Amino acid sequence: SMGQARALMGLSAQLDEELDFREGDVITIIGVPEPGWFEGELEGRRGIFPEGFVELLGPLR
């Protein structure tokens, strides 16, 4: 894990590789696949999402 982030708003996945989450969910960050995107894990599910949907809870490791 690289850190954690809290969802500022919900994301309804449009693509298979995207992660669904609700506002307030705390997501474990597991990677940065490309600039502007995070890869995360939530409730046993993994996927990517735009960084603008979340606030980091501390610096990434």
Rank of each mutant, 00 (worst) to 15 (best):
A13K: 10
E34A: 07
E43K: 14
R46G: 00
I30N: 08
I30A: 04
A7F: 00
D20R: 08
R22Q: 13
I30C: 09
G58N: 11
E18F: 12
L42C: 07
F53L: 11
D20V: 08
E43M: 15
R61I: 12
Q14V: 11
A13S: 15
G40T: 02
A7H: 06
L8E: 03
L60S: 11
S12L: 04
T28I: 02
G44P: 03
L11P: 01
E34R: 14
E23N: 06
L8F: 05
G24D: 08
E43H: 15
A13G: 10
L15V: 14
G3A: 06
E55M: 03
E51D: 09
D16W: 12
I48K: 15
A7V: 01
I30W: 09
I48Y: 11
F53R: 07
F21R: 01
R61K: 15
E23W: 02
E55P: 02
E39P: 05
W37N: 05
D25F: 00
E17C: 13
E34Y: 13
Q4N: 10
F53N: 10
A7C: 04
I30P: 01
Q14F: 07
G44Y: 01
P59W: 03
G31W: 00
L15S: 15
I27M: 15
T28W: 02
E23Q: 14
G44L: 02
I30S: 05
E55I: 07
L11R: 15
R6T: 07
R45M: 15
M2H: 04
I48R: 14
A13I: 01
L56I: 07
E39H: 10
R22Y: 09
L42R: 09
V26I: 13
D20S: 15
V32H: 13
E41A: 02
L42V: 11
G10T: 15
R46T: 09
I29Q: 13
Q14Y: 06
E55S: 08
R45S: 04
I30H: 10
I30Y: 07
G36D: 02
S1D: 13
L42G: 04
E41C: 06
I29F: 01
T28H: 07
G58I: 03
G52V: 13
L42Q: 04
G47I: 00
R22V: 12
E17R: 12
G47A: 00
S1K: 01
G3R: 03
I30T: 13
P59H: 07
V32A: 13
A7W: 01
A13R: 11
E23Y: 04
I29C: 06
E41K: 01
R46V: 09
F53Q: 07
L19T: 02
L8H: 03
G31V: 04
R22F: 08
Q14C: 08
S1H: 12
